[in-house]
Write a protein that binds this DNA or RNA. Sequence first.
DNA 1: AAGTGGTCTAGACCACTGA
DNA 2: CAGTGGTCTAGACCACTTG
Lengths: 222, 222
Amino acid sequence: MRDALRGRILDGTYRPGDKLPRDADLATDLGCARATVQRAMQDLSDSGLIDRRRKGGTHVRSEPVTRAVLDIPVIRHEIEGGGARYGYRLQARRVAVCPPDVARRMGLAAPHRMLRVRAVHLADDRPYLAEDRWVCPRTVPGILTLDLETHSANEWLVRTTPYSHGEVAFYALGADAPLAAALDCAPGTALMAIERTTWIGAAPITSVVSVARPGYRLGTEI
Amino acid sequence: MRDALRGRILDGTYRPGDKLPRDADLATDLGCARATVQRAMQDLSDSGLIDRRRKGGTHVRSEPVTRAVLDIPVIRHEIEGGGARYGYRLQARRVAVCPPDVARRMGLAAPHRMLRVRAVHLADDRPYLAEDRWVCPRTVPGILTLDLETHSANEWLVRTTPYSHGEVAFYALGADAPLAAALDCAPGTALMAIERTTWIGAAPITSVVSVARPGYRLGTEI
DNA sequence: AAGTGGTCTAGACCACTGA
DNA sequence: CAGTGGTCTAGACCACTTG
């Protein structure tokens, strides 16, 4: 039923920009309940094919987008899932005032004392991902007493600190000297960076830039 | 109601790995209808927080993932949405047998004659994105007679050729000489590449590698 | 084979928002 | 303020999958 509706849009019955009948009418046409149409429409809306607005009605998107859902697993699981042995090396841990760009990412008006953690995740003893993380101890006091030699901040946070929302960005980055050393590659090598910042309510939790080893790909089906 | 349920999982009532009561019981507990629980659970499942299996029940994911939904707009809209003037330059168009890696991406057993199109998209006359595209004329014959000087293959395809599924991948890439020339940057500059392949049913439509200008970021909220 | 989630119906009310 | 989508209920049946 839902698939029938989806087909009706994809097969060209309705064209980009077209307005669709209201749910109730579509339900009558198709001989099904309104809730069914509603659910089908919700799906299509989630996939980015249509736009729905109360009172405005439902329209086929005239500017279609490719919507990709990316799963970014906990790094240990990604490495072990690839059949490699996971390792972790703490490189630096210190409390410091964060630079302005980190404060901006976190939505703070002014720089702030935070815990900075730099670490490298290893797959079969070879560098896989270098992370440079700032954690806000005002939001997550427990991080200050955690033994970061043995516990990855990454995993401790996901296990203990739920977040309400966050931002993710992907970009390419040329390896500078410290990154090249951490990832065991030539300076200037093109690397993929994932930047993530999370909050619980209005309180920032952490902001991290993770840089993957050369050749890393992030992929999914659409 | 849905939010109440979501809260119940996020607030630590249920822990990673825990099994949740069946929908019907939760509905009784919360004093709501089973359909409501079902919808809430569906949401949580979509966000990657829980795993649901018929007969197996519902579990809080023990290996949480960060699930990011990325919208990749049609490039012209992205450029115009940024307030810049859109431009397009065709660089090459020829029919040729595709290399083995392109055939592999498309799921073809053997290389195949296809149309190759290389083009650059411009924002305010400056290079924004370079695309190297292979189109399968067996699936999309119309592409052979299209005037690619004036029409971007990108837009023509999204307007005329629906796809049933596809694959997308992101990775970093150092600029080789032709790319550096196309994007007006130094050779070796780290660039972000988006590789996309689409099919209609079992028939491959197109496979494209798009490389964005230096500094390009792809971001979203989670 | 039984237990669980997935989908559907028919009906109601609510919430947002565009004319 | 009226029209549309969003959410909810109470009940039914189906489909998958695991023990």
